[in-house]
Write a protein that binds this DNA or RNA. Structure first.
Lengths: 213, 213
DNA sequence: GTCTATACAGTGATAGAC
DNA sequence: GTCTATCACTGTATAGAC
């Protein structure tokens, strides 16, 4: 039973489940502590505030995702000393994110990322994006090397577009099912390939004119 | 003074300002009614609930945006009876959205769209995306005609990616300023051109292989 | 129809006992 | 570490004034 794990772990599990199902604001601490069989005050004791609990839930999934991005990029660098291809770098960036989005509790968790990224709470947003510092520092130069004709701002902007497409795909593809009248299914396994194709073509377009740096 | 306009208009103005600054959940009805110099119960009288007020705030900006998208597409169809180019169709779709994002109160309002799109409240999400029915019905075939080699699901998926990039760009470009250490500025006027270039290249990539329909 | 005052159940947070 | 009691604040509903 749940009571075998520690209180803070049970709180994290319960919070993740409820946040993903209902959203941050809509989930009360009382609902979380009831599901975790803990006292209301335990949240503030272990995590300081509801805000702190949200950050802890996010970090528990962000860190493995970004760690795998970095280890994939390390493997690529080892394989290709002259620098990996654009497509390979984009795959190293996108595949670990998709892997989370497709897991058993996948999509809801990724929805949490999207919500945190656009959260009105500046402190939450700041803590959240700080988790991406290492990824930005490693993937920026890798893309620059794969696409020497593009300027650094070109690359940053395109990655920004790709991130937007990724977020929207993993967190809001239900919308697409409605618009396409069922022709596009959110769990279509080909979606990742479509996104990588799209990202590669889009990013490559930054190198074509490259005027605006 | 504000008291010259009707109560419901003052409520909409105040709500828009506060929602954009703080978020939906973080803005209390008491703060809105105080800023609008109205009674607390006026929100429920005029809009039924806080939820109804949110929908009304969104609709006030969504309708002109989508109306301009459609009128731009009408103009294109009149100019090019054989069917407008892919780039022209994408411009008709993206430019009106950007115009809102760059207006005086622009970015905050667009942040509201992104929040609504990913809202945990299914009723809010449903009402929100219903505002796009006409746009989807008109732009889908227009893109199909501009890109005959692509299947309809190909096109829907790519538009989905483009929408994600658009949302992230207009609502979360502050993140990019941080990662690029100031090299990319959110108010760079070239951003729209970058996004259109990116979208065109990405969407065009769907027509290359076109296997997965 | 429009607006006001007020009451109510549920929220996050905290101080202090154990 | 845990729990109880309590705080100020939230969205909503309603009775009644104009």
């Amino acid at each position: 039973m749940a009571t075998l794990s520690s209180t803070s772990e049970r709180l994290l599990d319960a919070a993740e489940r409820l946040f993903a199902a209902e959203g941050f604001a809509e989930t009360s601490l009382r609902a979380i502590t009831a599901e975790a069989e803990a006292n209301l005050a335990a949240v503030n004791y272990h995590f300081g505030s509801k805000h702190g609990l949200i950050q802890a839930v996010l970090a528990r999934h962000l860190q493995p995702m970004n760690a795998e991005r970095l280890s994939r990029l390390d493997a690529l660098d080892a394989e290709h000393p002259e620098g990996p291809s654009l497509r390979a770098v984009l795959e190293a960036f996108l595949v670990p994110a998709f892997a989370i989005g497709q897991g058993e509790r996948g999509r809801p968790i990724f929805t949490l990322f999207a919500r945190a990224h656009g959260s009105p709470d500046p402190a939450l947003r700041r803590t959240f994006i700080a988790e991406f510092d290492d990824v930005a520092a490693r993937f920026g130069p890798a893309l620059q090397r794969a696409l020497p004709a593009a300027s650094m701002p070109d690359i940053f902007w395109c990655v920004h577009f790709v991130v937007g497409a990724l977020y929207h795909t993993v967190s809001a593809s239900g919308v697409l099912e409605a618009f396409s009248e069922g022709a596009c299914r959110a769990d279509d396994p080909a979606t990742l390939d479509r996104l990588i194709d799209f990202a590669e073509a889009g990013v490559r377009s930054a190198a074509r004119d490259g005027a605006s740096s």
